[in-house]
Design a protein around this nucleic acid. Structure first.
Lengths: 340, 340
DNA sequence: GTGAAAGCGCTAACAG
DNA sequence: CTGTTAGCGCTTTCAC
């Protein structure tokens, strides 16, 4: 029923191999033949059977997007789905289809990425995951399947490419901005849990910015709360006295910043008049209400663009990542709105 | 390099076909042989080359999840990603991998689902889409590829299975609840745009509930705003006078309900004391702050469970949907919180 | 510049 | 219960 190169061969009076070559723009085939073949193929609405192609070339045109089983779509990770959307769009532009999959098979507790490689369902891997197992990475390397970490720096930096936000620089930008807005006594609110050190790096950056100005931030002003709107809200209400001793807050997630602002409103503490606050992420929470939140924009466009570029390069040149891993920290940017 | 059934054949001294049969639990093979073969396969970490299997069986073990190119992940569709997460999890349980893909290829403006079918990359289709083209549906039917619409009722109901929230019933539940809470003068806020009629159905249900009580809601109290937090917020602030003539609001999306409550707070109108408000969806917006929002819970668990069940049935029995389409309206439930 | 034939790794008659 | 053989639809030597 579905149409094959054999059909095209019969119609054009050429052989199957010529059809195959023509469709692949093989230079040994004459322009005229190529055009003729493609014309017939188009008219018939022909598409190659991908399984047959994959069987002989070992290339599927698919990449896997692997995410954590525990992925929290609400709350802290509000911006992830935009990243995914971007990513699939970029991949599609490169004629790649995306198989999206949890890291492990729950029932058997076995690795989905290893399975996909073994089944020859994919050509490459994109890990959106803070703690990929060593086995997964090593198997991909061994099998010559390009693998890239996006957004999360893997706990063991060594043997995988990654494209990740430069969190320390983001923290630095936040600190510098608060300083420039006149804040001299800053409260730093990190998020828990701190997988992949991203939050401590943000803290570090902020400290650095103040150090440059000769100000040493006190350890007493670093704390950490759960990454949710409500925990920020409740924190502000319960600790308004403590908070009002500061003139600036660096909340390391917009969702927390939004919660805190809402809580402070209840306590009649005005942002940015009484206290300034800067968030991190640039996700939906930063523009829920007024004041819109000044924040550090995660460079998700750059992350997707660069990682897809790297991936397609590796796929096209058939080269391994092994031996020359790209570890890229991508600089986020300051986005000034109303809360500072 | 990768291991094949040929290797297993050599090791066990059996033929390739016996290995193939044993791995597929063919009843003609003895228990003993099956066990032996599987043991060796396990020890070698063998997985079948899916391309080879697909080529001979025409089954890939993949399904496509097709979504609208314009999918808005923030705002109105906050609960979609939970649905997707659920869906992939259910599919994975059935040993199906998910290829996730936009409906059309932007550059060529051509259908991705038709391409995937032609390329033999998938066995079935899940459309998360309000307006699938006729061509897509018809091609799937013609090629005997099961296709199912989830969440959205297709504009032309006829020739595709669907599993969709019973929106009219949801509206009815909302109306009934407001009535029981004493509201006699209700404002209905629909969302724009109203693709797939879902919002007008919610309105209809609410009207019906009041009609049962002998109350005719006035057309003057039906309006429609953009589906975003801020538009709800601004609406409330700009129209607090108008709003306070009512004792209840049915906001047909939680995100709007949340925005309205925030706006009313600014105007010192208290929810639920001065006015009661019920939302729709049960997404992250309904528990951002106090008062937590009473809402209609979209039955996403049931939608995913039922549609995956139907899909796997069709895949396993190799039957067509054609001629006996399942059109399922799944009842949402009332979730009473603090705003009513 | 094009064709014949073998092969990718499985499955499925057919045979015994 | 197991083996032999052909075939799925492409690609790719090798030949001309």
């Amino acid at each position: 029923m579905p149409i094959t190169i054999k059909d095209i061969a019969q119609i054009t009076g050429l052989s199957k191999s010529t059809i195959s070559r023509a469709l692949n723009d093989n230079p040994r085939i004459s322009k005229a033949t190529i055009e003729k073949v493609k014309k017939v193929a188009d008219e018939l609405g022909f598409e190659k059977n991908n399984n047959a192609t994959s069987l002989s070339t070992s290339k599927t045109g698919n990449v896997a997007l692997i995410y954590q089983n525990t992925l929290d779509v609400d709350g802290s990770k509000a911006y992830i789905d935009q990243l995914f959307l971007n990513l699939r769009h970029e991949l599609n532009k490169q004629n790649l289809d995306t198989i999206i999959c949890e890291a492990t098979e729950f029932s058997k507790n076995t690795s989905n990425s290893i399975r996909l490689i073994k089944q020859r369902k994919i050509d490459g891997l994109l890990f959106f995951h803070a703690s990929i197992s060593r086995e997964d990475r090593e198997y991909a390397n061994k099998m010559n399947i390009p693998a890239i970490n996006i957004h999360f720096k893997p706990e063991n930096n060594s043997n995988i490419d990654y494209f990740v936000t430069d969190n320390e620089y983001g923290g630095y930008l936040a600190g510098k901005h608060l300083y420039e807005k006149g804040c001299r006594n800053v409260l730093i609110i990190s998020c828990a849990p701190n997988i992949g050190q991203e939050y401590s790096e943000r803290t570090l950056g902020c400290i650095k910015a103040y150090k440059e100005q000769g100000i040493k931030l006190s350890e007493a002003s670093f704390l950490s709360i759960t990454t949710s709107f409500f925990s920020g809200y409740q924190f502000a209400i319960d600790n308004s006295g403590f908070i009002s001793k500061f003139d600036g807050i660096f909340a390391q997630a917009d969702v927390i910043a939004a919660g805190i602002i809402a809580g402070l409103k209840i306590k009649n503490i005005s942002v940015p008049n009484d206290i300034k606050i800067i968030g991190f992420d640039d996700c939906l929470y930063s523009t829920l209400f007024t004041p819109f939140i000044t924040t550090i924009h995660q460079p998700k466009e750059e992350i997707t663009k660069q990682s897809v570029k790297r991936l397609t390069e590796l796929l096209n040149t058939n080269s391994t990542t092994a031996g020359e891993f790209v570890h890229s920290l991508i600089k986020p940017t300051l986005l000034v709105r109303e809360s500072t």
